[in-house]
């Protein structure tokens, strides 16, 4: 999965209606709430077997920072 595919699929799962890029701060999106966080944790766990917790996510801002947290080497 490329970074672009990851961001597009995650945005789809989170039902984000605006256009997002790697630089978008997901915490500032209208759609970001506790369910959104649950979807993000579940999606990342399913695709990468990486378990993020609420503390990890609180430190993240942009999709790029999320990708860094997951590990850039896991993307093609």
């Amino acid at each position: 999965m490329t970074k672009e595919e990851f961001i597009a699929e995650l945005a789809e799962e989170m039902e984000i209606e605006t256009t997002v890029t790697a630089e978008t701060n997901f915490q500032e999106l209208d759609e970001w709430d506790s369910m959104g966080m649950m979807v993000l944790i579940g999606f990342v766990s399913e695709k990468f077997e990486v378990s993020l917790n609420a503390e990890d996510i609180a430190k993240l801002t942009t999709f790029e920072s999320l990708i860094d947290k997951i590990g850039v080497d896991k993307f093609s």
Partner: peptide
């Protein structure tokens, strides 16, 4: 609990 925020 580790997956939830302190508030939750």
């Amino acid at each position: 609990f580790s997956q939830l925020s302190d508030e939750n």
